[in-house]
Simulated scan of single mutants.
Amino acid sequence: MYRSRDIAVQLSERIKELSKKILAETGRDELNIMNFCGTHEWTITHYGLRSLMPPSVNLVAGPGCPVCITPGYYIDILIDASFERNTIVITYGDAFKLPGSRNKHPRSLFHAKANGGNVKVVYSFQDAVKEAVREPGKKHVFLAVGFETTMPATAIPLVSGKIPRNLYILSAYRLTPPIMRFLLEKHPEIRLDGIIAPGHVSAVIGANSWRFVAEEYGIPIVVSGFEPLDVVLSIYMILKSIEEGRPRLMNEYTRVVNPDGNTYALKAISEAYTVKDSYWRGIGSVPLSGAVHSPRYSNYDYLESMGFKETITDDKHPGCICDKVVLGLAKPTQCPLFMKACTPNNPYGPCMVSSEGTCRIWAENMPVLHGAVLK
């Protein structure tokens, strides 16, 4: 009986054969396959999957971290709010140390709390609801960070009428198909031969949401699971599609993802939120990539309730190349601050903050990286 490791090794040999054949036929030097999920990048890095690839197959980390691209302006607003009387700011732990756009103290909600700001870290939006119910005399502001995966967490309670009136939401939600289209159109210098689509996101929005990648751009794309064997198999499927000359959408993660997604969650999302052009930290404004509350639920929208207007600020910090890392234009090890002024314990740039940030993933897996990524 074969073990997963044996199958992965066999697939890696087939990947070497396929890539050699493809390169010989096309005259290319390398093939670039990008993942759009921080968890996929963690699997690739933690299990040393790059070491199974031939030098000609380049696994590129793409925009798979929602915390990394959250505008610093939002953090600035919440830092100020945490010092207001009778106001409590609530955040996930992943965004607790995310720096704002100001180059002054306090730079993050972590620093704000250390200086007396009223900030609480929760594991889920339901915890935020419980906090607001427990203290009805105080205003609670929840930082809603995430891609489509986490949107149902607020959308379903909103449309079900289960959110107390003293709880507000600052929606930092961003949508993944628009950033994929943006990258393919605005950054052709990143020549992609295949894409590994995010499994968690696809469980919500459905595999068919990625069909445009193959049909409009001629790039094979695979919705992948998160086990090492899932990822290696997905890479093989991409190369096989290239060899056959038939770029198409494939679903390796059929045990979780169906073609049309989670219709119950999608219905709640479409009722609770509307789509608009939105800013991605360090990247710029991406068409139809953000979610704001629909008019029916706008009284829960913190920015609208407080009269804040969307503002694009210079939230790049000197020396940090997180924007290039997010887009796959650079590796974390090319940043002069990586594991020097910027570490997991003391993150300077946003890519080192979240467990889904490429810099954080690489920093915490340096022994595995040696000799695999740094080739």
Score class of each variant (00 low, 15 high):
123 Y>G: 13
144 A>C: 05
121 V>M: 02
168 Y>L: 09
150 T>Y: 11
123 Y>P: 08
135 E>F: 06
150 T>K: 13
151 M>L: 11
126 Q>I: 04
127 D>H: 09
126 Q>D: 15
132 A>G: 06
164 P>G: 07
118 N>S: 13
139 K>H: 03
151 M>D: 07
156 I>S: 07
134 R>T: 06
166 N>M: 12
158 L>R: 04
161 G>W: 13
131 E>S: 10
145 V>G: 08
139 K>T: 00
135 E>S: 11
142 F>D: 02
148 E>G: 10
125 F>N: 10
129 V>Y: 04
145 V>I: 11
134 R>S: 11
160 S>Q: 13
118 N>L: 09
119 V>H: 02
115 N>E: 13
144 A>F: 03
155 A>R: 04
127 D>W: 02
120 K>T: 12
154 T>H: 07
157 P>Q: 10
138 K>Y: 04
130 K>M: 15
169 I>W: 00
162 K>S: 14
124 S>D: 09
135 E>M: 13
149 T>P: 08
151 M>E: 12
148 E>C: 08
137 G>Y: 06
134 R>W: 09
138 K>S: 08
132 A>T: 08
128 A>C: 11
161 G>P: 10
155 A>W: 03
159 V>S: 09
121 V>I: 14
128 A>T: 14
162 K>L: 14
142 F>E: 04
134 R>G: 07
145 V>Q: 07
149 T>D: 07
115 N>S: 11
158 L>W: 02
118 N>F: 07
150 T>M: 11
132 A>S: 12
137 G>M: 03
119 V>W: 02
160 S>F: 09
137 G>S: 08
140 H>T: 00
125 F>C: 07
142 F>N: 01
157 P>R: 12
144 A>Q: 01
163 I>T: 03
149 T>R: 05
118 N>K: 11
121 V>P: 00
143 L>N: 01
130 K>L: 13
136 P>W: 07
132 A>C: 13
123 Y>K: 11
138 K>C: 04
117 G>Y: 02
132 A>K: 15
137 G>Q: 06
143 L>M: 08
135 E>W: 01
133 V>F: 15
148 E>K: 09
134 R>P: 00
164 P>L: 03
149 T>G: 03
149 T>F: 03
